[in-house]
Design a protein around this nucleic acid. Structure first.
Length: 449
RNA sequence: GGCGCGUUCGUCUAGUGGUUAGGACACAGCCCUCUCAAGGCUGGCGCACGGGUUCGACUCCCGUACGCGCUACCA
């Protein structure tokens, strides 16, 4: 295998678009990393390019198979499919840094040969040319860094005394070898970029285009760290977020279609996405808005997709159903009410089993008075007369009963809801009755009398 | 400390010299209503500060403050 030598004649803009996501398997997928992956994916998809996954596992001690799986799972969940990388292959592999030692050795030898290296306490360091370096960033614009002072900008280390590699070196080598055309990454790398550029030059390689995106912050503007709630992408599937909703929200952090629209499908975003439309300022992650957006997605989602997302939550809660059609009817009436799928089981349990809990306060408030019991008895009697068991007819019967009893509709509705579901909040009562069926409805009402 | 980046409602944003500074989330109130984190309407809330440039600055320039990043034999 020979090294890929990028032609110095070809300008970067002529090269095919190849972007990469190069995470280090740390055990969790940071929400900011996920967004970086998303932006790289979007850019590649927009330009019919290639999106590459490369695992930066140079720090062996903390890299495990499980940690790696976390990354794969996160990307899969977000729908960010990669064209080259682990599980997928490709002609620029291997895609694990731990397997690319030979390549790094060759590149190091090249630098050595041209006198760019020196040893310092066993570590191999790169001798900076000590010049001013211009970073022409697609998001930040042109930035000049003055690297002439070794005190303020010490030479970077490429290799540790124990032989392991330092990020700056392998990252650059891999990007050259894999012919990456656009490096889209977090702004935390901006200050590293001039040093990387020195390496590209020393290796006589055309650098890729750079695009540094602002970081995702906490609501108070502080940096999101591992300990902050919400950084772990793995949390979102568990809590019942739809991947398309979170993905949409993430796109809006630092990027905007500029026409006030917010709910955009990924195809549309792919078309509109432009690196130079990415903001320069850090963006705070707003859990409230993310939550709202999930609600919007669940509301507008078709039932088939909703069921697909909902079923794992129902199964986990031990709920069973016999007919698919029944499941769909249940889901359709709670769908407009719920913003998080994790809440689903509690809302629908009474539709699948008679063994559902009663909220104490709700019982206390609506089912204990003699009036409530008397009203429920009357209601049950009236409903027994309803032939066509559909929401609208049930509603008519209930309202007529309320009138006959001289009480407000709510005086029947609230106790009835608690009687059939054990809860004071839920789907529309008439729809609940309809889906539950006449028999079960009457049975549960009478049980409280 | 040095270097770099940034600063429009609490938050995400639109805005590129002349706008009643627009939208969204959140918040408050009202309406609808059988509950609801559903829907409808209304409202409060913002250009960090100080200098310039200009007939005129949220928009351009400089400075200050504040925030963030880098400054590792972490990635």
């Amino acid at each position: 295998m020979s090294l890929h030598h990028p032609s110095s004649a070809a300008s970067m803009s002529d090269r095919p678009v190849r972007t990469r996501f190069a995470p280090s398997p740390t055990g969790l997928l940071h929400i900011g990393s996920a967004r970086a992956a998303l932006f790289n994916w979007l850019y590649a998809r927009k330009h019919g390019g290639t999106f590459i996954l490369r695992v930066e596992d140079t720090d062996h001690s903390r890299n495990t198979r499980e940690a790696e799986q976390v990354i794969f799972d996160g990307l899969h969940w977000l729908g960010l499919d990669w064209d080259e990388g682990p599980l997928k292959g490709g002609s620029y592999g291997p895609y694990y840094q731990s397997e690319r030692n030979r390549i790094y050795e060759e590149y190091l030898a090249r630098l050595e040969k041209n006198g760019h290296l020196y040893e310092d306490h066993g570590a191999i360091r790169f001798r900076s040319p000590r010049e001013k370096v211009l970073v022409d960033d697609l998001v930040c614009g042109k930035i000049e860094f003055d690297l002439t002072n070794p005190i303020t900008h010490p030479d970077i280390t490429l290799r540790r005394p124990d032989g392991s590699w330092i990020f700056h070196f392998v990252n650059v080598v891999d990007d050259i070898e894999m012919e990456i055309s656009h490096v889209i990454r977090g702004e935390d790398h901006l200050s590293n970029t001039p040093k990387h550029l020195e390496l590209y030059r020393a290796l006589r390689a055309d650098p890729p285009h750079f695009a540094h995106t602002p970081l995702i912050l906490n609501r108070d503007g502080s940096k999101m760290s591992k300990r902050d709630k919400g950084v772990n992408l793995g949390l979102y599937p568990e809590e019942g977020y739809a991947p398309e909703a979170l993905r949409n929200y993430l796109c809006l952090l630092g990027w905007s279609p500029k026409d006030n629209r917010e709910i955009l499908d990924i195809g549309e975003i792919t078309q509109l996405f432009e690196l130079n439309h990415i903001n320069r300022r850090g963006a705070a992650f707003d859990p409230d808005k993310c939550f709202w957006m999930n609600g919007q997605y669940l509301l507008q989602m078709d039932l088939a997709r909703y069921a697909e997302l909902a079923i794992p939550f129902l199964q986990k809660a031990g709920l069973h159903w016999e007919k698919w059609e029944y499941l769909e009817r249940v889901l359709s009436i709670v769908k407009p009410k719920i913003k998080l799928l994790a809440d689903l089981p509690d809302w629908v349990r009474p539709f699948f089993t008679d063994d559902f809990p009663f909220e104490e306060v709700a019982v206390e408030k609506y089912l204990t008075t003699p009036e409530a019991k008397k009203n429920l008895a009357t209601l049950a009697k009236a409903l027994a007369e309803v032939d066509r068991w559909e929401a609208s007819f049930v509603e008519t019967a209930l309202k007529a009963t309320a009138t006959a009893l001289g009480v407000k509709t709510g005086d029947l509705v609230h106790p009835a809801r608690v009687a059939v579901s054990g809860r004071s909040i839920g789907a529309g009562l008439y729809e609940t009755f309809e889906v539950l069926g006449k028999e079960k409805t009457l049975q549960r009402l009478i049980k409280q009398v």
